[in-house]
Computed example of a mutant assay.
Amino acid sequence: MPQIQKEGDAMPAVGGDVTMVISGSEIGQTIYVGYTAYYAPFLEYGTAPHIIEPKEKAALHFDWKGEGVFFTRVKHPGTRPVAFVGRAAAQWNVTVNQVVQELRNRAGVRA
C-alpha cells in the first residue's frame, strides 16, 4: 500500500510516479489529499475495457514477447483500481491526531 507522503514527495505507482499531496495550514482545519499526475484518476478508479488507437501515427508500437510489433488497434482489458487516495484518506484519523498533538505540544496544552 502506498504510504502517505509529505507534499512534493514522489510515490511510485503503476505507469510512473504519482505525487501524493497532503497539505494544510499550520493551524488550519482542512487537510487536502490528492494527486498531481494527469493519469492518477485512471489508477485511482480503474478503467473499463477500451480500444486504443494511434492519434498521430499509422500504428502503435510495442515490445511484445521480446519483439517489436505494430498494431493499428488494441483492445485494452481495462485496469483494476488502485485506490491509493481512498486508502490514504482512511489514515486521516491517525494523521490528524498526530498534527493535533504536535500543535498541543507547541502551545503547551496537555490533552
Rank of each mutant, 00 (worst) to 15 (best):
E56M: 08
Y35W: 15
Q98Y: 02
A48T: 10
P41G: 03
I52F: 00
P49I: 03
E44M: 07
E102F: 05
G24P: 02
G24Y: 10
S23C: 06
A10Y: 11
F42H: 13
V100Q: 06
T19M: 14
T72A: 09
G34V: 08
A89Q: 10
L103A: 09
A58N: 13
N105L: 05
V69S: 02
V82C: 04
H76I: 00
R87F: 03
V69K: 14
T95L: 12
Y39E: 02
A59R: 09
T36R: 14
V85K: 07
L60Q: 00
R73S: 12
F70D: 11
Q91L: 11
V14N: 10
S25L: 12
V94F: 01
R73M: 05
I31G: 01
V33C: 07
G86R: 13
F84M: 15
A107N: 04
G16N: 07
A90Q: 13
T19R: 15
V85F: 10
Q29W: 09
G78A: 04
V109H: 05
A90S: 12
Q29V: 08
G24S: 09
G34I: 08
V99C: 00
G46C: 03
A58V: 09
P81M: 07
A13E: 05
Y35D: 07
S23A: 11
G15R: 02
E67S: 11
Y45Q: 13
A90P: 00
A90T: 05
K55Q: 13
Y38N: 11
V100Y: 04
I27K: 13
V109S: 01
R106Q: 13
K65D: 06
V99T: 08
V85C: 15
F71L: 14
I51Y: 03
A90H: 07
D9S: 11
P81V: 05
R80V: 06
V100D: 02
A59C: 05
V69E: 04
A89I: 14
V69P: 01
R110G: 03
A37V: 06
Q98K: 15
L43W: 07
W92V: 09
N93T: 14
A48Q: 14
A59N: 09
F62S: 00
G24I: 06
G28I: 09
I27E: 12
D63R: 13
F70I: 04
A111L: 12
R87P: 01
T36H: 10
Q29C: 05
W64I: 11
E7M: 12
H50Y: 02
E67G: 04
I52M: 04
V21K: 13
D9A: 15
V96R: 11
N93L: 11
G8H: 03
Q29D: 14
A37S: 15
V85M: 15
V96C: 00
P54Y: 02
K57F: 03
E102T: 08
Q101L: 12
K6P: 00
G66P: 02
D9M: 12
Y38H: 12
R80C: 00
T47M: 07
T30A: 08
D63E: 15
A88H: 01
Y32T: 12
G46A: 04
V96W: 09
R73A: 04
T95N: 01
Q5P: 00
Q98D: 14
G28Y: 08
A83H: 10
I31T: 06
H50R: 09
V94S: 05
G78L: 08
Q98C: 01
T30N: 07
Q29T: 14
W92H: 06
T95R: 04
Q98H: 08
E67Y: 02
F84I: 09
V94P: 00
G78H: 08
D17P: 07
N105H: 08
L103C: 03
